[in-house]
Design a binder for these strands. Structure first.
Lengths: 244, 244
DNA sequence: AAGTGGTCTAGACCACTCT
DNA sequence: GAGTGGTCTAGACCACTTG
């Protein structure tokens, strides 16, 4: 098929194909961890050349939505299959290697919180899930986290379900609720440890802590999660890599 | 020319071309802001097809080493020409827009510092430049910075030179010393404000501050700069974007 | 051996910029 | 109009994985 006006927007053909592939991912036609059809099949399905499909798939692979494996095929990226079960965690010990990471669930409840609801794309009056937990790195408690989630996307979420997944939230969202997190925006600040948190993490009250506020997004920039985190950075740090 | 053994390493042809282009960039054959030869010219020069050159250039464009402009050509990326003169600055006011950014040079001297020298790829006994300054965002002092630099790459650096460039360091490295910064790695922590810094930034001693340690790299991962920064995050934050 | 993605080529046409 | 990068196609061969 030649590029033509028979697609919704004025876009290069390969971007339109990219959009169609993304739609199939959102609809659950191809689920995380599964292979998508081969490039030749997709070329036939959309009536374009293999090269055009290749360019669409390449962009999605670059964005880590898909993962290519030579000789095997192209797969839907999944947090469940990756080595790091905490793909967005940027905190690391200063001098040691991060060997073991565990999470202790403190609480899971529903609360009304207009600001959070709005950020999650819900009506201001809607309730949201509020999950609190502590992260331990190599058996040391380092982070206190509050996670806010949109109930419509996580029907049937309970503390038992969270524990089943050993607190690997992003993997749980995906395999249990079909919500794949792709991208997050963070705001970092230094703040003094509040009394409640200082007790939980065995840190003197007022100690400087790293505060991380995160909003995470799924396909098409749909908000998926809010996270508020306080980290003890006396022996740990947040690593980042910047490209000018 | 078909892919053959007449290139140094076993690599796809387009990556070898990418290496040759990078060499020309490092040698200064094409300088920041200047156009590189057209794809067709490069294809002739290296005796490969335009498509292969295109793939090499595309990777470099993605890494922001080159910038393509349809109809005009492909240019060497430059900090001097970009809007933001502070390309690696991640600090922003919480509620306002960042309108004005100024830097006040405090000092520039040479010091002996074995650890810094080693990180900068020098002999442990070599001296390094130590530049200190204060950053003001919208006229508020927010960051105290210590910058360590390798003298061999910055011959003739003086306080007057820094002031000439209005403290836009990355732009100065490039236009004055031919050292283009491409990439940086950072470590963030929360620490209490030391007395010297608290006075400079008008912050009570001990206030939680964001500490940023950065090492910046030029072409081929050559170390270019060390930076140690302390930021007052009471009304400002560090923004980051993560792709899982 | 068959099927997958990875590389490379050649050629066509388009959109944009400059003169 | 000439020259640039941007898109699309078609076909060839390679490297890798699986049966």
């Amino acid at each position: 098929m030649k590029p033509g006006p028979d697609f919704p927007a004025f876009q290069p053909l390969y971007r339109q194909i990219k959009g169609l592939i993304t739609q199939s991912l959102m609809s659950g036609e191809w689920r995380p961890g599964e292979p998508i059809p081969s490039e030749i099949e997709l070329a036939g399905r959309y009536s374009v050349s293999q090269g055009t499909v290749r360019k669409a798939v390449s962009e999605l692979a670059e964005e880590r939505v898909l993962v290519r494996q030579q000789g095997r095929g192209t797969f839907v990226a999944s947090h469940a299959e990756e080595r790091s079960q905490f793909p967005f965690l940027r905190i690391t010990p200063d001098d040691a290697e991060l060997k073991e990471l565990t999470a202790e669930l403190l609480d899971l409840k529903r609360v009304r919180d207009a600001a959070s609801a709005r950020l999650l794309g819900l009506n201001a009056g809607s309730s949201v899930f509020l999950l609190t937990r502590i992260l331990r790195l190599n058996d040391t408690p380092v982070c206190y986290e509050e996670v806010r989630l949109p109930p419509p996307r996580l029907k049937g979420l309970t503390a038992a379900v969270v524990r089943q997944h050993e607190c690997m939230l992003y993997s749980m969202y995906e395999t249990r609720f079909g919500m794949r997190v792709l991208h997050a925006e963070e705001r970092l600040k230094a703040v003094g440890a509040p009394r409640e948190v200082s007790a939980l993490l065995q840190v003197p009250a007022g100690t400087p802590m790293l505060q991380i506020e995160r909003i995470a997004f799924s396909y098409r920039h749909e908000p998926a999660e809010l996270r508020h985190c306080l980290c003890d950075t006396r022996l740990h740090h947040y690593r980042n890599s910047i490209t000018g």
